[in-house]
C-alpha cells in the first residue's frame, strides 16, 4: 500500500517546520549573520520536497512580517528563500555533506547581494552597490557560519527527516542517484563526504 500522510498530520508537520525555522532564527539573533534558516530549508527541501518547503518558506515569511512588521528586509524574504529552495531542488542529487556545506556557504556569501536588489529600486544602483559593499564582512561571517553549521548538522538532520517520514508514512522526495550511482530514496541511501 502506498504510504500517505493525512491532511491533519501534513498541517502539523508543516507547522512544526515553520516553528523550528522561527525559533532557530530567534535563538541565534544575538550572533550577527549566524543563522540556521538556510540549513533547515536545505534539509527540508531534500527531506520533504520542494513543495512542502515552499509552503513553509511562505508561512515563515508571513510569521516574520507579523513579528517584525512589513519593511524592506522582510520583503526580501519573499524571493530569497524560494530561490534557495529552487536551487536546492535542482541540485538534490548531490549526496556529499561537503558539497552542501559549500553550497550553504556560497548562499551566505551571496545573501547580501541578493538582499540588495530592492535597494536598486529605492536608492538606485550606486546606492545599492554601496549598501552591499558595506555589508561584505557580514556576508563573509554568514558564509563561514553556514559552512560550519551545515558541515556538522546536515547529516544528523537528514537522518531526522528520514525518521519523520517513517513516522508520518510519507514518500521520500525523488532525489535520484548521483553520478556514481549512489543514493536512491531508501532510508539507508549513502551519504558521504
Amino acid at each position: 500500500m502506498k504510504p500517505s500522510v493525512s491532511p491533519a498530520r501534513e498541517v502539523a508537520l508543516l507547522a512544526c517546520m515553520v516553528a523550528l525555522l522561527h525559533v532557530g532564527k530567534q535563538a541565534l539573533n544575538f550572533l550577527p549573520n549566524i543563522e540556521v534558516v538556510t540549513l533547515l530549508l536545505i534539509v527540508y527541501t531534500l527531506g520533504f520536497g520542494w513543495k512542502r518547503s515552499l509552503l513553509v518558506a511562505v508561512a515563515f515569511t508571513v510569521l516574520e512580517m507579523t513579528v517584525w512588521a512589513i519593511h524592506l528586509w522582510v520583503i526580501m524574504y519573499i524571493y530569497i528563500w524560494p530561490f534557495l529552495i529552487l536551487l536546492t531542488h535542482l541540485l538534490r542529487r548531490n549526496r556529499s555533506v561537503l558539497f552542501w556545506a559549500l553550497f550553504s556557504a556560497a548562499f551566505g556569501l551571496f545573501f547580501g547581494m541578493m538582499a540588495a536588489l530592492p535597494y536598486i529600486v529605492t536608492i538606485g544602483l550606486p546606492g545599492a552597490v554601496a549598501w552591499w559593499a558595506s555589508g561584505i564582512p557580514f556576508d563573509l561571517m554568514h558564509a563561514g557560519g553556514n559552512f560550519a553549521l551545515c558541515l556538522v548538522l546536515h547529516r544528523p538532520l537528514m537522518y531526522l527527516t528520514d525518521r519523520v517520514r517513517a513516522i508520518f508514512h510519507m514518500d521520500a522526495p525523488d532525489r535520484g542517484t548521483d553520478e556514481n550511482g549512489e543514493g536512491g530514496n531508501g532510508p539507508d541511501a549513502a551519504k558521504s563526504i
Partner: peptide, 18 residues
C-alpha cells in the same frame, strides 16, 4: 571557486567601502 569568489568579495569591499 568559492575561495576565489571570497577573495573577490574582499577586494570589492576594500575598494568600495566608505
Amino acid at each position: 571557486a568559492l575561495v576565489v569568489v571570497i577573495a573577490g568579495f574582499i577586494g570589492a569591499w576594500l575598494i568600495l567601502r566608505d
